[in-house]
């Protein structure tokens, strides 16, 4: 009897303080509270998305510090542009769009840096057919992959072109729908399907090569 009274009291206080509301409300309803300057609602949003975004961005950039910076920047931009969000669209799509744009910008920056560092030393590695650049950014997160297969998969994802990498991460790791990926990347669903298919075929080829090498 006493236990029931206690539970009821807790539930009532939770309802009165809005805790249960925050836990059960949809993302969009919560974000309306954020737009009304409810800091607690934004904390709930961060709690819901922090791990998902971090995982997604880490798989894209394969660097823990960089991923953390990008996730923080994503949340800052979400907060900064909270009044630009229209409730007619999916909040997760909007947040993923911001995160993916940041991650893709980071990848393009790296590509430019690689290009200029190659141009700076044109005679190095000139006898080799393919230039295998050491991935300096891959180091800090490698311990996260518990086994060789995990490292091989992450390495294969790293090797994918950015347009295939994005759709593979969003589809196979984040398990988003084709339609949502299309909204995030601003491309038709057919294009997304095509890229997913090609990305998977490339991944499959690379993993097969890796299997041949270890055997």
């Amino acid at each position: 009897m006493a236990d029931n009274t206690y539970i009821n009291a807790v539930q009532v206080s939770d309802i009165e303080s809005g805790v249960l509301d925050e836990l059960t409300l949809s993302d969009e309803a919560l974000f309306i509270r954020v737009q009304r300057e409810d800091a607690r609602a934004f904390e709930v949003i961060v709690g819901r998305y922090r791990t998902r975004l971090y995982n997604c961005i880490y798989r894209m950039v394969h660097n823990m510090e960089c991923a953390e910076d990008l996730v923080q920047e994503t949340f800052l931009r979400v907060y900064r542009n909270r009044h630009n969000y229209k409730a007619i669209s999916n909040l997760s799509t909007w947040i993923y769009t911001i995160a993916l744009n940041l991650a893709r910008s980071e990848l393009r920056k790296r590509k430019r840096r690689q290009f200029f560092s190659l141009n700076a030393s044109p005679h190095e590695n000139s006898t080799r057919e393919g230039i295998d650049l050491p991935d300096k950014n891959a180091g800090p997160g490698d311990h996260l992959e518990q086994n060789e297969l995990g490292r091989a998969i992450q390495h294969a994802i790293d090797q994918l072109p950015e347009k295939y990498k994005s759709v593979i991460v969003l589809r196979d790791i984040e398990e988003l729908s084709y339609e949502q990926i299309g909204e995030i990347l601003h491309c038709p669903t057919g294009t997304v399907k095509s890229r997913v298919n090609r990305g998977r075929l490339r991944l499959q080829e690379m993993l097969r090569q890796w299997q041949v090498e270890i055997l």
């Binding site: 971090y54 995982n55 196979d172």
Partner: peptide, 20 residues
């Protein structure tokens, strides 16, 4: 596909929430 899906979920480092 199953191998990619089997990749462990990576969580932010401790102190992430504080910094954010």
């Amino acid at each position: 596909i199953q191998a990619v899906k089997s990749l462990p979920a990576v969580s932010p480092q401790p102190g992430f929430d504080h910094r954010l």
